[in-house]
Design a protein around this nucleic acid. Structure first.
Lengths: 127, 127
DNA sequence: TCCAGTACTTACGTTATGGTAAGTATTAAC
DNA sequence: GTTAATACTTACCATAACGTAAGTACTGGA
């Protein structure tokens, strides 16, 4: 067992939802359960490999639940656990902040991005 | 100019404070301005290179302010801008969530960590 | 027999991020 | 003239994270 140390709660949180994809997956699961292919469409730009990899990690971490309907063609549904839902709620203000300042953020030197908002921060999710 | 797209506010926020160090730096600046060497002590484990690199990026992004007192030996103070403070506040719930579940998080398979909390989530910072 | 649809899996390569260790500049104090 | 203190800077290396492209398994329907 490697030893890791969190110097604060932020550190611990980001250890779980850090990286390029997890927060987006979390967000797209916050509204309702989703199938794998559905998530693949919703999370723009993610590869199948990344999607399944992150979903597995999140399942291991107890923030998403995987339900296999054992049908053919396969049908699998992913949803948030209560732990995951709790996390999603904790992220809400950060999401709102990001939405509020998206234009500004996009123009930042470390970003040089083009804005195209959708799905988050537009009150689709309950607080 | 490269083109980047944020699919939600979370995406945008994490583009700014993602990575291993920025959130910790942000947090240590939230209470009061800090000198470089002070931050180096406060942010456990960070190298000088990383510290200065992240501080520069954060300065460019307008979330920290750098004040050089032009003394010898050098004296430089870093503090949060209002933008940075705003961000810190938006991160508060996430920080609290992390603190609350730190034990559990530390035991997660993707982490295998040893807990050693301090400084964040223990009400040193105003909400 | 071949294709479609779904949920993966695998192999391989690239890029981003972080780490180590040493060096620079300035001036005062010893 | 050497050391100490502070705030960096530089070169180089290691690893983790991410990306691409192709393949697998299963069965129903054309």
């Amino acid at each position: 067992m490697t030893k890791k140390t969190y110097s604060c709660g932020l550190d611990a949180s980001l250890a779980i939802i850090g990286g390029k994809w997890k927060s987006l997956i979390l967000w797209n699961l916050a509204g309702s359960p989703r199938r794998y292919s559905e998530l693949h469409r919703l999370v723009a730009g993610i590869s199948e490999k990344m999607l399944i990899q992150k979903l597995k990690e999140m399942e291991l971490d107890g923030i998403v639940d995987r339900k296999d309907f054992r049908e053919v063609p396969p049908r699998v549904e992913y949803s948030l656990t209560t732990f995951g839902l709790d996390l999603a709620q904790a992220m809400h203000p950060l999401c709102a902040w990001g939405s509020k300042h998206m234009e500004r953020i996009a123009k930042l030197p470390t970003q040089s991005a083009v804005v195209e908002a959708k799905s988050c921060g537009d009150s689709k999710h309950r607080s």
